[in-house]
Design a protein around this nucleic acid. Structure first.
Lengths: 110, 110
DNA sequence: TTTTTATATTGCAATATTACAATATAGATT
DNA sequence: AATCTATATTGTAATATTGCAATATAAAAA
């Protein structure tokens, strides 16, 4: 017990959950916001932007990368991290679809 | 250590993280999918739809409710759970906004 | 009123996450 | 080559999450 029962759900459900989970921490949302704000890929100063120690930031970046929210390559002693539009679009369309279905429904009982 | 440093981030970042975190588990995504599929609010049979024990499902429902993804009221020995369109829309517009900004960018270095 | 039915709560064990100090790594600079 | 700089990894402690058995709760049905 304690481990998520991933194999009992559909691939799509797991995929959405993985992406959502990656953004389920304010530091990682902040990283995404920062990547958008600077409008660039090379963000060597991201550690200075967050109220967290360098290893912690590195760990959060790793999780975002593992989940597919960002992609990045090592370039010497700097890093090139970019948002992966494909993943963002997956989330966007998932929620847009829900929203549309809720709009049609209107049986607003709660 | 171990606790999330919530107070170091903006309210919006925390709000998005809370909503995303709630959907960061496939069982909770499955619950959302099911609420959409049945197109109704009263979903007493949700326990039978998931590969999890009743207390576990109850706990996931509680987390979805705490995060604001669903709203619900107790009605006798059945439950009326609905998706909260407001929360879904928050997520949808957050990701739509990111997507639009990424579209404009085009400096696809990674 | 007793029983049934459906959901919630409690308690607990297994696992995962969060955070950081210390250290490693590797390209850039001198 | 030695040093600097930026990021990654390791190890570890604190906390959170996941899952379920056992139990509680409360309205409905008998």
């Amino acid at each position: 017990m304690g481990a998520t029962k991933t194999d009992h759900f559909t691939d799509k459900q797991n995929a959405i959950a993985t992406l959502a989970k990656a953004l389920g921490h304010p530091a990682r949302v902040a990283i995404v916001d920062y990547l958008l704000k600077v409008d660039a890929c090379i963000c060597g100063d991201i550690v200075n932007e967050l109220p967290l120690a360098q290893p912690t930031v590195s760990q959060h970046l790793k999780e975002l990368k593992n989940a597919g929210i960002i992609k990045g390559e090592i370039e010497g002693n700097t890093i090139c991290y970019c948002l992966d539009k494909n993943s963002i679009d997956k989330l966007q369309s998932y929620f847009a679809n829900i929203s549309i279905k809720l709009e049609k429904k209107k049986k607003d009982c709660c």
